[in-house]
Design a protein around this nucleic acid. Structure first.
Lengths: 265, 265
DNA sequence: ATATGTGAAACCCTTCACAGCT
DNA sequence: AGCTGTGAAGGGTTTCACATAT
């Protein structure tokens, strides 16, 4: 043991299921919008619609937090905003550091979404000496040599990695060694971290590939023309079946399609 | 019917579980790296380590695609790269449009991750006349008035939304009306789309909030020394029902912590 | 009358453990 | 001997449906 584990230690989260935690920010956003419009209460039905989930799920989610609703009435918006904020740990300030101030890093630094909700960009860090000192989003970029000092002095426990893939693991190791225990990774690599450190990744290339998978399926499902003209072929039934049999045919190998002469780049 | 559903129609994906689909891009990336190093075969154990999952899961995932391995040996790297690419629909070219060329949009357009794997940025679209004509990542930005024409002429079925939250739904509606059936949404809003349209969202603020939740828990788990200083001693005891008539006084209530006098911004 | 809170059922995903093939 | 492919067990998540509270 003592070897670095690979991903998402899952952190037993007291009693709240991980799936629920992942939806709390969604509820919070919807509630904040209601709060700004001075709406005093919401029903699970309304709030669920605003958050894009179904109401039974939302009620079950809230039940893990406590009994915060009133039967026959609904939920008090302000009260829920506070309770969810507290549950998520947003009533305190989280200083974060961002490493890798290239195109993406700079865009993220400029993105207002952080500051608005408990996160404060404590430092921007880059390895390029030409970047150091330059202000990005009103903050002067610092050199990566000072990473440990920066993390320590600011009490940073959350780091954002927006470096090229090749540098990510190395940066991650330094962040962890310096005391960071949560990492948001935008670099297209799998990061190895010790137990006790949480990693979440955002990879837009992966998201697109998942969409492509479904897109391809849709195209195959249609009569045969590619088009996909507006409409929504609801297909309420278990329709589908269509060409291409799923089963790995008794004999050998997969559905269809063998190696082509030329590999796709 | 006819009403727009809210999120992730889940698209029955023939036989491949959604969770497996979401991991295929990960496997593909690891395999591509092996391929570049001319590694001929991998075991499930090795590949799993490289992709950051466990080997049983990987084998089960691959079993949905077919029998692509050789017992006692492992998987042929090149062969798997091709099969997974094909399964994901990456052997064809996917023209995409990106709407909203601000900081984030520009950064995404510059990100190489797209082009490298089957995705081609067919057009960049913005509502700001001042942006129109400007080259971003080598492509001239076009005006949103031409959205429908652009989608149609390029046969675009995948759209990326990187606009401010307020404009996202409206842009989404136009994309869908124009024929787009898959959307990657970077705006912090829930999008309503008709059945048959897939939406995936990327929201870094949400990711950070999830990390904060676990981070908070870690801090509380420690012996007792207040690791995270500057805390907000949230009325440790069961504080009185403070001002705010909001408190829906009643039976149970949650674990601890009532409304504070001052709400966190 | 209305909407929450929650056992129970259904479903999906992961992990185990080993039969079966090379 | 070694590694894949997969039934079966185990956990987690979603959905149902209704008792319960206002």
């Amino acid at each position: 043991m003592a070897t670095g584990r690979t991903h998402r230690p899952a952190t037993r989260s007291r009693g709240i299921p991980e799936a629920t935690v992942a939806r709390l920010p969604l509820y919070l956003r919807a509630l904040t919008a209601l709060s700004e419009r001075s709406v005093p209460t919401v029903s699970s039905e309304e709030l669920a619609a605003a958050a894009g989930v179904n109401s039974a799920k939302l009620r079950k989610d809230f039940s893990y937090l406590g009994s915060y609703g009133t039967r026959g009435v609904g939920y008090d918006v302000e009260y829920l905003v506070y309770q969810i904020s507290r549950e998520l740990g947003l009533t305190q300030d989280w200083p974060i550091v961002m490493v890798g101030i290239g195109n993406l890093g700079a865009a993220l630094a400029n993105y207002g979404g952080f500051a608005s909700r408990g996160f404060r960009v404590a430092a921007l860090i880059d390895a390029d000496p030409a970047m150091v000192g330059k202000p990005v989003a009103g903050i002067a970029v610092q050199h990566i040599d000072d990473l440990e000092k920066i993390v320590d002095e600011n009490g940073v426990s959350i780091g954002v990695i927006a470096t090229p893939a090749g540098a990510a693991q190395q940066v991650c190791d330094r962040l962890v060694a310096a005391g960071v225990t949560s990492i948001l990774n935008f670099a297209p690599t799998v990061l190895s971290v010790p137990d006790g450190v949480d990693v979440r990744k955002v990879d837009l290339s992966i998201e697109l590939q998942i969409l492509a998978f479904h897109e391809q399926r849709k195209a195959g499902e249609e009569s045969d023309a590619a088009a996909v003209v507006a409409s929504s072929s609801t297909a309420s039934g278990v329709a589908g079946a269509s060409l291409r049999d799923a089963t790995p045919a008794g004999g050998r190998k997969g559905p269809d399609g063998d190696m082509p002469a030329v590999m796709p780049a």
